[in-house]
Amino acid sequence: MGHYTPTDREIDVTTPSVARMYDWLLGGTDNYASDREACDHLLRIAPSSKELALTNRAFLRRVVRFLAEECEIRQFIDHGSGLPTQDNVHQIAQKADPQARVVYVDDDPIVLAHGRTMLEENAQTAVLCADMRDTDDIFEHRDTQRLIDPTKPTAALFVSVLHCLPDASDPAALLRDVASRLAPGSYLVVCQLVSDDKAIRDGVTDLMATTTGGRWGRVRSKAEVAEFLRDWRPVEPGLVEVSRWRPDSQPTVWKQGNEWEEWGGVVAL
């Protein structure tokens, strides 16, 4: 049976949640009127947002498959995992090895509620209701220690979540902290929303900060994200718009000129 961390935090359906907004953009049903209204506002500023969410999810599938099949990674920590959907990290990784282990981390209590159902028959997974910045709590948690062997390589995923952190939280320091806790041969997967258009960066940042009650960070530039990862060696093809990261045989490539994009890649530690 999978494990989850209990939480006393109530689900607030009146304030939009990033996880539930992402669920709606992916075509899911685990969202509320407040989330859908916030997505309507977002689509007016950045009409490509739904396409972007789908592109990002496809990147997650490819990167986990690459890590599990080609790099033989058997341990994953998925920071800001969001609501369960099709092709979750453990489902992809366990196709390569049924014993692959995954710890999901998210601070939205609805993710925890749905994770109970999804993981109740999978002993190789756990869902932690935690802030990804609380690295001591995450790595010292009994389920992390049960599933993640600190002496073996691990993939730490930060897929489309660093834009939820303000600059004051120092995302680069968070990545260094997590990397310092992982064994040699581990990997970081990092991508976040970027835009070369300052008006888009500021408009989306202001909208999301307001609608989520401050639970948001900032749309950044490519150079800023590259700076987060400067200490490590990128895996080919490097840091790119995510539809261009090891695309499938018939990729859906992100259109140049869209308001924003998901940008990043995989680095070896």
Results as ranks from 00 to 15, higher is better:
Glu262Phe: 04
Phe59His: 08
Gly213Lys: 05
Asp107Met: 11
Val18Lys: 01
Ser249Tyr: 11
Leu175Gly: 07
Thr211Tyr: 00
Asp107Trp: 10
Ser34Thr: 13
Asp35Gly: 14
Glu224Ile: 07
Pro166Ala: 03
Glu69Trp: 06
Leu175Lys: 01
Tyr4Pro: 01
His79Ala: 08
Leu67Met: 10
Ala123His: 01
Ser17Gly: 10
Pro247Asp: 01
Ala58Ser: 10
Ala183Pro: 09
Ser180Lys: 13
Thr151Glu: 12
Lys255Cys: 02
Ile77Ala: 02
Arg230Tyr: 04
Thr210Gln: 08
Leu147His: 03
Gln75Pro: 05
Val204Phe: 03
Gln250Pro: 00
Leu175Gln: 06
Val89Met: 03
Met1Cys: 02
Ala38Ser: 15
Arg57Ala: 09
Leu54Arg: 12
Thr212Val: 05
Phe139Trp: 15
Val159Asp: 03
Ala268Gly: 03
Ala96Thr: 01
Asp231Ala: 12
Trp260Pro: 01
Asp106Gln: 07
Val240Arg: 01
Leu67Pro: 02
Thr211Trp: 00
Glu261Cys: 10
Ser221His: 04
Tyr187Ser: 08
Pro247Gln: 05
Asp78Glu: 07
Thr144Asp: 07
Thr14Met: 04
Cys191Thr: 13
Asp177Val: 03
Pro251Asp: 04
Ser81Asp: 03
Gly115Ile: 11
Leu112Val: 12
Cys39His: 10
Gln99Ser: 15
Arg181Tyr: 12
Glu121Asp: 14
Leu52Ala: 15
Ser186Trp: 13
Arg142Ala: 14
Arg218Asn: 07
Ala46Gly: 01
Asp12Val: 11
Leu54Phe: 05
Asp248Arg: 05
Met208Tyr: 12
Glu37Pro: 10
Arg61His: 13
Ala68Phe: 11
Val103Trp: 04
Glu224Arg: 05
Val127Glu: 02
Val267Leu: 07
Thr85Asp: 03
Leu112Gln: 14
Thr151Phe: 00
Arg201Ala: 14
Glu37Trp: 13
Ala172Met: 06
Gly2Ser: 11
Ala223Leu: 04
Gly217Phe: 05
Asp206Thr: 14
Val189Leu: 02
Pro6Glu: 06
His41Ala: 15
Glu227Lys: 10
Leu25Val: 03
Leu83Val: 07
Asp107Gly: 00
Tyr4Gln: 01
Leu42Lys: 10
Asp106Cys: 03
Leu174Gln: 02
Asp136Asn: 12
Ser221Asp: 06
Arg230Gln: 13
His79Lys: 01
Gln99Phe: 06
